[in-house]
């Protein structure tokens, strides 16, 4: 199994979720994160003082999938999260050595 982690623009979450559902993915985990990359931040003003906000809100997505489905999942996320503008985010894949479904104790491919 592989763990696919993606960091995307928050407003693209619904598009990515719908695309993954359409591709038959049964579950994902999402968290609100902040990041900086080439996009840089933005400026906020409080009582005349300007603050450069380096960290831009992002959404992190995690999906555990069977090894042979990894490439199609990555491509699905890439195509649904891309806007072509700076700050679209990144996706990376790591190896999962053991996977357990808590309710049933199923392991491995059965637990995906």
């Amino acid at each position: 199994m592989k763990l696919v982690t993606a960091v995307i623009k928050p407003f693209k979450l619904d598009d990515v979720k719908d695309a993954l559902k359409a591709a038959g993915i049964a579950g994902i985990t999402v968290s609100e994160v902040r990041g900086f990359g080439r996009q840089g931040g933005h400026t906020e003003t409080y009582r005349g003082a300007e603050y450069k906000i380096d960290f831009v809100p992002k959404v992190s997505i995690r999906v555990v999938v069977a090894a042979d489905a990894v490439d199609s999942v990555v491509e699905t996320i890439v195509s649904s999260a891309a806007t072509g503008k700076i700050g679209d985010g990144k996706i990376w894949v790591t190896d999962v050595e053991r996977l357990v479904r808590i309710r049933t104790s199923e392991e491995g491919a059965d637990a995906v």
């Binding site: 407003f11 933005h42 400026t43 906020e44 003003t45 409080y46 906000i53």
Partner: peptide, 16 residues
């Protein structure tokens, strides 16, 4: 409109 009025109109965030 996508960014929201807080940042685009007032250069502030409610929940920073």
């Amino acid at each position: 409109e996508r960014i929201g009025l807080d940042q685009s109109q007032h250069a502030e965030s409610a929940y920073s």
